[in-house]
């Protein structure tokens, strides 16, 4: 079921993502079942759930990497349809960080970050470089600018991926299991960057298993299971007093260690 009650401590802004009655099928398998979700400006949402629950598909529908089959999705007031111009507009305002980093291996770190600002936002090379260096400093690896992705560790690559997305000055950042592919000792450096981003007021939707991060940063934790949004609550309520049976089962499994 859905929940649109705003529970953030600070007063959130207007809705920037509105998903209403969204369904999606892969063949005959329904991966998103009547999903309703509203995200307001400045909100930090963590989506948790077992694998196959549809969490990744949900956020990939927001920037049209997946097409939803019915229902409406509006991002910053723009409705996502087959209209290519609208899709481009949305993608410019939504940044995404992938589980597998997906840095461009044949370009330097700096070139990775400058590519989209130059060719999509039509910045000059000098401006793009300044922006890129700015964000590389923000994620604390400015000295790696001239290296290639293959020469960096996983944690460093993911931080670059975050910087690359930020160079487009997006209004919303989507994270698809950003630390799942990292060795344990590198998870913290990436989470620190994400916490910093949250503190600066970025609207974020994070699909993750890192419950510590959820407790620390999230305004709302959303639990998905088999295509449904089962429960949605602030972290306090979610972890200490989950309402739904399935949430309780999931928490019991995931919080063992």
């Amino acid at each position: 079921m859905s929940s649109t009650t705003p529970l953030a401590a600070t007063e959130p802004g207007r809705p920037v993502i509105e998903m209403v009655h969204v369904h999606k099928w892969f063949g005959s398998f329904e991966v998103l079942r009547d999903v309703d979700l509203t995200v307001r400006q400045g909100e930090r949402i963590v989506i948790a759930g077992p694998s196959g629950s549809g969490k990744s598909t949900l956020i990939r529908c927001i920037n049209r990497l997946e097409k939803h089959d019915s229902g409406t999705i509006k991002v910053d007031g723009i409705e996502l349809t087959d209209n290519l111009k609208r899709i481009d507009e949305v993608r410019r305002e939504v940044g995404m960080v992938f589980q597998q980093f997906n840095l461009f291996p044949h370009m330097t770190i700096l070139e990775n970050c400058m590519l989209a600002p130059i060719w999509v936002r039509k910045m000059s090379e000098a401006d793009a470089r300044a922006t890129a260096m700015n964000y590389l400093e923000r994620v604390r690896i400015p000295e790696q600018a001239m290296k290639y992705p293959g020469q960096l560790s996983g944690g460093q690559q993911q931080r670059v991926a975050i910087a690359r997305a930020l160079c487009m000055n997006p209004k919303i950042m989507l994270f698809d299991e950003p630390t799942s592919a990292l060795d344990p000792e590198m998870i913290k450096e990436v989470l620190d960057v994400m916490v910093g981003l949250a503190d600066d007021g970025m609207t974020m939707i994070v699909v993750t298993h890192e419950m510590g991060f959820a407790r620390q940063v999230a305004d709302r934790v959303v639990f998905m299971d088999r295509g449904d949004i089962v429960e949605s609550a602030d972290p306090e309520t979610f972890f200490n007093n989950p309402q739904n049976e399935r949430t309780r089962t999931f928490l019991a499994q995931i919080l063992q260690h």
Binding site: N63, R92, V94, F98, A116, V120
Partner: peptide, 9 residues
């Protein structure tokens, strides 16, 4: 996908 997510056509 990463390129599309950045807004590249």
């Amino acid at each position: 996908e990463a390129a599309y997510a950045l807004g590249l056509k």
